[in-house]
């Protein structure tokens, strides 16, 4: 199976690799997946007073498509409001990276990581977590 150029680009030059201070109230952290499954994504966002994501970082244990999906997600998140970020759909990632069917789960994991990071931020700031109407599991 050959990778798309965009997957290779994100894999070779991953954007926004790194770690934000997870104890900060401005930072939301989403850690999804499990080592036994061969995929673990950690996605972090930093949010300002206007509810806009000013920074995003990731680290991913997984295949090239998982790394590319999370790298792309951090790119998309920067500058978006929380509401806009909530509406990122895994199929947008599939389309952008031209993921084959066997790799769709990588995009699902990225979407889950975004939502987990947002909810972590909300809980830290005394807000209700948003329950996704989409059931992936």
């Amino acid at each position: 199976m050959a990778y798309s150029d965009k997957v290779i680009d994100h894999y070779t030059n991953p954007r926004n690799v790194g770690t934000l201070d997870k104890s900060s109230t401005k930072v939301g952290t989403g850690l999804v997946g499990a080592p036994e499954c061969g995929d673990v994504m950690r996605l972090q966002i930093e949010v300002n007073e206007e509810n806009v994501i000013t920074d995003a970082k990731f680290k991913t244990f997984g295949c090239g498509s998982a790394i590319a999906s999370s790298s792309l997600a951090t790119e998309w998140l920067k500058g978006k409001s929380i509401d806009e970020a909530m509406s990122i759909d895994n199929m947008d990632i599939v389309e952008e990276l031209a993921l084959p069917p066997v790799k769709i789960h990588c995009s699902v994991l990225a979407e889950d990581a975004i939502k987990a990071a947002i909810n972590d931020y909300r809980i830290k700031n005394g807000l209700e977590p948003i329950v996704s109407e989409k059931a992936h599991h």
């Binding site: 997946g33 499990a34 673990v40 950690r42 244990f61 599991h137």
Partner: peptide, 20 residues
């Protein structure tokens, strides 16, 4: 992220993973 956690001394067996 696992390498980072390992380096921080976190026991990965004790983490509650959100299985996919």
């Amino acid at each position: 992220p696992l390498w980072e956690m390992f380096k921080e001394g976190i026991d990965l067996d004790k983490v509650e993973w959100v299985e996919h």
